[in-house]
Design a binder for these strands. Structure first.
Lengths: 349, 349
DNA sequence: CGTTGGCACTCGGTAGAATCGAGTGCCAAT
DNA sequence: ATTGGCACTCGATTCTACCGAGTGCCAACG
């Protein structure tokens, strides 16, 4: 069986004609959701050969794993690998004029807390693209504490509040075993503040080992802030347009399994974090590593602050999603977000 | 056309046999999702008449709007009104032993901030029932401010943080036009605190009309806290198991439209708030007032603190949902939540 | 030798006919 | 009033026939 190694080469390049044919199949399939036949491919301007030739090339493309046939005597549909080639050879498209305006207007008018901006951004993304969107906010592992205080909430309850340099607020309720006087709380609060200001969330703080109710209060407050991380890394995730998964797939089973993944925000975040270091990226079907997402593709654009990926925006659609549009949208929105956060960074100096 | 007014009476009671038949139809349809025929109804213990008699009663029940026929020569399925009668005449069921244990264990082990508890409660609810759950936390319109401060975040940015008596923290970012010194911020912060402590969020606070940067800072901080309500009434909504809507319905269209409503959390909250004053309640299909939810039923149990409904737990399923189970679960969980919050109230008082 | 038109073949999808049977409505008998 | 009997309805299922989109193969062509 000494065949040419055309099948094994993973970084395989296709000759111009195969590429044109693959491109035509993918494009049309994305448009129609139907298997694509040789004749319609041959009709494409970029191909320019007869259906018969297209057919023989298609056989090759199928052998090489770029196309598949739902059944004999049907047209071809792209495999994940076919989409992969398509995406890898996509020339950088640009966002439509109308969408650009929408994005600009959105970012000019949106205001308020970061969380609100991120949440509304996820809505924007999904309404622009008709796909489900995921927005992951910057983690504040590198933020430092700007202020810490303990607020008395009743005889045996107190709240520890820490304000971070990025504007986030962490809070922890303390249930106290014994009653603590208001004065003790105030005392502990100011000591805690002095102790923690400037510290970052991922470092330990040296505690003076003293005795007494106040010292104990400080100890417990510090522990609460540093040890109980509410969401992993304090990530903020916002998912927009989850109802759109029902548009993207034919069967309720697929819809259910995709929604099932989206529900596990931890999974979604780690998925995006894995991908986002690579820059603007597409992951297709099996590449995502989840059986439930085998019918999906995800476009991720990192939101970089000072060149470091801090957050990300993602679009989740069917593998036959409109990649050029999704890529352009994700890119544009991530840049706007980066610009906004970067601006704030700068302002803070 | 002087007929008996059996059709018009909205508060109509059915005679024992009709009631038994309706009950059998609803019960079986909930179980099988299929139209129910006269013979299987007649087989039911509680009915005890022949299929022929059942049929003639069914004709009456259909005329009165409790049942409908998908087509001639099919069995009957309940209408919304049929479900309504069923639910109204349901004897208060009790939660299964295993579920009771699960609920108790959950509330014994769950800890942390209210938000986290509520979120996990929504997950608990949906995993107990297989339905989508909605948990609405207590609004803090009646909470008072326990602490207020302004934290410097950079030359032209500051953060106003207010801690409420119920343990919630409100924050607002201020973008300042001019630079304010650290000392001014500290000054404003302590004045703000003195000014706001004890105030409730729904009242206006008298501001001394003084001049200068500090007074301006205080003015803007107060405005930020009182005027910009991030979510209506500061509601906290948690939706659990939204992927279960894909289990509940056959067609992607239905799934999409239901998810579409769930996405609009404002709508969901107002829906629950409308219902929850009435105590443990079921709303069925058209009663919900949303075209998109005509295939759904919602069970709502208010979470009362000191006898006043403060939050609510809800379960959303198909109209053929398991009402007894859903009711028992919602009730049990809402009581546990009330107990927990009530306990905290007491401890504070 | 690559390309192409021709052609037989495959097979999913659709339409129509036949059949089945669950379930009904009606009626006469009890 | 209740019931068994019975004709009838109509969706669902099965089967067949058939159409046609699309294929794979091959011989002919430049």
């Amino acid at each position: 069986m000494a065949r040419r190694s055309e099948k094994q080469d993973p970084a395989q390049e296709l000759d111009a004609r195969k590429a044109a044919i693959l491109d035509a199949v993918v494009t049309e399939h994305i448009d129609t959701a139907q298997p694509v036949g040789s004749s319609s491919v041959a009709a494409s301007q970029a191909v320019g050969v007869s259906p018969a030739t297209v057919r023989s090339e298609m056989v090759a493309l199928e052998r090489e794993g770029f196309l598949s046939q739902p059944h004999t005597s049907a047209g071809r549909i792209p495999t994940d690998r076919g989409y992969r080639y398509f995406v890898d050879h996509l020339r950088q498209g640009t966002l439509g004029e109308a969408q650009q305006v929408t994005v600009r207007e959105f970012f000019n008018s949106v205001h308020g807390e970061i969380e609100d901006v991120l949440e509304q951004t996820s809505t924007l993304l999904s309404s622009l693209t008709q796909y489900t969107s995921v927005v992951v906010g910057p983690s504040h592992t590198h933020a430092t504490i700007r202020s810490a205080q303990i607020v008395d909430l009743g005889p045996t309850r107190a709240l520890v509040v820490a304000v971070l340099s990025d504007g986030a607020v962490e809070k922890r309720t303390l249930e106290l075993d014994l009653e603590v006087s208001v004065i003790d709380v105030a005392d502990a609060s100011s000591q805690l503040n002095a102790l923690l200001v400037g510290a970052s969330l991922d470092q330990r703080v040296e505690l003076p080992s003293r005795e007494g109710a106040v010292a104990e209060l400080i100890r417990r407050s510090t522990a609460a802030i540093f040890e109980q991380t509410p969401t992993i890394d304090g990530d903020q995730v916002f998912i927009g347009g989850s109802s759109r998964v029902a548009d993207a797939f034919e069967t309720v089973d697929t819809v259910r399994s995709v929604l099932g993944i989206l529900e596990q925000e931890l999974v979604v975040v780690s998925l995006l974090r894995d991908i986002m270091d690579k820059g603007l990226t597409v992951s297709i079907g099996s590449e995502l590593g989840f059986e439930s997402l085998s019918a999906c593709a995800v476009v991720v654009a990192p939101v970089s602050i000072d060149g470091v990926p801090a957050g990300a925006v993602g679009l989740l659609g069917p593998t036959r999603m409109n990649y050029p549009e999704a890529l352009a949208t994700a890119q544009a929105v991530s840049e706007e977000l980066a610009h906004r956060f970067g601006g704030e960074e700068k302002r803070r100096g």
